[in-house]
Amino acid sequence: MTTMATAPAPGFESPGVEDFQLPPIFGPVTKPVLELVLAAIIVVVLFRLAVRKPQLVPGKMQFMGESFHGIVRNSIAKDMIGKAFLGYVPFLTALFAFILVNNLFGIIPFIQFPTFAHPGVPYALALVVWVVYTWVGIRHHGLGGYIRISTWPPDVPWWVRIILTPIEFLSNIILRPVTLSLRLFGNMFAGHLLLLLFILGGEYMLFTADSILLKILSPFAFLMGIVFTFFEAFIQVVQAYIFVMLTASYIGTVLADDH
């Protein structure tokens, strides 16, 4: 990661992991910590505005709130979970909104740091998801039933099962939260690094480098930075969506009944 720029000009330090270590603002509070609080406030305020005076024919805010809620409710929860989906809609919607806002902080001017480029909260949220779907599975099937549907491929000889069951156990019970969190963290981390590279690189080319050629070429670096900002916006939305969709799918999987 630290050597992404293929031929750094003399004196150029390509951005690396150390750029993600942000200095504390006061006490132990760093920028991501404030972002987490801000994200929660933004989400709550927007949703409260949406239901300030609920009407059958919605106003603009209410319409947007309903649309957001409706996407999670009808496109994610209903498809992934099935008949008992309604109880999980609040958790999934809150999760989607919280992750989405935190991700979008990566391209919002003056904030410009995706909170989940630090892995702590993705770990925590994935653990919460793991606890939720494990608990739902055990409640629905009992402990044995839950382990059976998660690790017991049907209709295979016992010696095949000896091989397959550990794989499913690892995949379904251990790796799910790991991949869930690392997918989110990795995308945010790499995306932010990419933007840093273009912007800091352009800055260096324009102000620091001696070469006139680099100064002339610097707008291209900034242009690429802008292009990738839009690309990142897309990635940030998609990653929030995937996190929630997979969460719903895990819940749906542990709720699926025998046939």
Partner: peptide, 11 residues
């Protein structure tokens, strides 16, 4: 009507 342990299509 999914089989046990089977994820929904997009996932």
């Amino acid at each position: 009507g999914r089989k046990t342990g089977e994820a929904p299509p997009p996932a």
